[in-house]
Every structure is written in structure tokens, then in C-alpha cells.
Amino acid sequence: MKKEKKLMLIIFLISSILLATHEGEFWPFSIYPMFSQAGNPWSRGLVEDVQDSSRADLWDTKPLHVVEPRTLALKEYGIHEIDFANYISKTKVWDNTKLNGLRSTFQIDNYPGKMWMATRVVGHLTEQDSVVIEAIPMFLFTSDTTIKNPRLFPEELND
């Protein structure tokens, strides 16, 4: 048992150093911090299947129930919903590289006639302990264009 003990102590030491210097994650070592910060607002993503791009409320932030019936099932298009959610909620600067990355994930060029709205969804607790969920339109993708929400990106020219 001496060798096992020594080896376990060494590996434990190495894994502790790796975790301490890599924010608790060095796969497969982890301190499993998911869901540790309770009550914080969250941000996810969904894709709205837009039928009419001339709609007056196209770029409005809406309650979830308005967008829910028009939500695209990403699984049917081979898009990983968590990757998409992280991409749209964690990207801080939307330069051309980031936008093209999202386009290539969607592969919308293969679906002429489709209009997909990449939408950020945010949720928070109110002081009355109820959960409020809102959908924020970010980018409208068609097979040949990418249009940014003019209310969020007023200074920038759209492609």
C-alpha cells in the first residue's frame, strides 16, 4: 500500500496545483463549481424562425412566450444548443470573425429562403421572487446576409 499512498498523494498535489491555477478546471480534474452561485441572472440563447422580416416588433426585446412558438429546433440542424447559447451569451465583441463563426455554425447558406434570428435570452429573479425571462434579438441570418440589431449596434453598418 505504500506505493499507492505515495502515488495518490503526488497526484493529489499535482491536481490541486492545476485546479488552483486554472480556475478550478483542468479536465478531468474539477471542483465542479456549476450552479454554485445561486440566484444570479443568467443568459442563454435560442434561434427564432422568422417568417416575416418586415414585422414592426422584429428587433424588440420580447417576453419569452411571444418567441416560444417560433423557436427553431437546433437539434434538427445539427447545432449544439449549449455551444450556441455560450457563443451568443459570452461573446463580448461581435467582430467579423465572431459573426462569421456563428454563420458557419448555422450553415444557413444551405437553406435558401430561411431567416433565422439569433436571440439572446436573459432571466432574473424579481424582488417579488418571480422569474422574468426576456428574448433579445441579436442577428438576423439569411442565406446571403447578416443583419445586426440596429438598436444594439446603432453605429455599425450591416453586411
Partner: peptide
């Protein structure tokens, strides 16, 4: 939201 985004419902 994750399930809605994945399956559309």
C-alpha cells in the same frame, strides 16, 4: 430555454 432551443418545444 436550453430544451426549447434544442427541440423547439
Amino acid at each position: 430555454i436550453d430544451i426549447l432551443s434544442k427541440y423547439g418545444e
